[in-house]
Amino acid sequence: MLSAILGLSLLALTLAALLVWVARRFPADSDPLVVEIETLLPQTQCAQCGYPGCRPYAEAIAQGHAEINRCPPGGTATIQALADLLGCEAKPLDESLGEEKPPLVAIIDEASCIGCKLCIQACPVDAILGAAKRMHTVIADECTGCELCIPPCPVDCIDLIPAPQVASLPNALKRAQRIQMQVRA
């Protein structure tokens, strides 16, 4: 009886120690530079930079694969902040990717919405609420104004209006990290 308890506890402790050692020896990714770059990006997840989201773009910048002037929603301010962080020259925004606009939010013309769910699938931040053949609506606080929901809409019932207030960056970043955690888990 005693040997059973001792043996099993010893085994569990050894394995726990092994896990702790492995966790210390092989720290999980997150290059601090990537994190710092990501906090400067506007978290629209709009993919206008050519990467699937802000995090992949931050990774590309950190590895030197991407220029810092590929973020139209961030515009001049973001480019300047990135240039300061990385100690390089600020460049004008690459206009071929899109133009700088004031912060926007999407709004659905609820009378014309046919409930096709296409915009829900397109939304990178899960800011559209609705079910099949039911009216959809945009959660304004969550919307980043990325415009990705506009092309798939078959009845053209989504408009962009100027955001009521400047989108809160810390919230957007937290949300993006939460979504990444969910994807990872």
Binding site: L8, L15, A16, L18, L19, V22, F26, D29
Partner: peptide, 18 residues
């Protein structure tokens, strides 16, 4: 079961960082 769970966890940690 204990060994398998710990092993899988350890491998995941290693792969995630490497």
């Amino acid at each position: 079961i204990l060994i398998i769970a710990a092993l899988v966890q350890a491998i995941e940690l290693i792969i995630r960082s490497q």
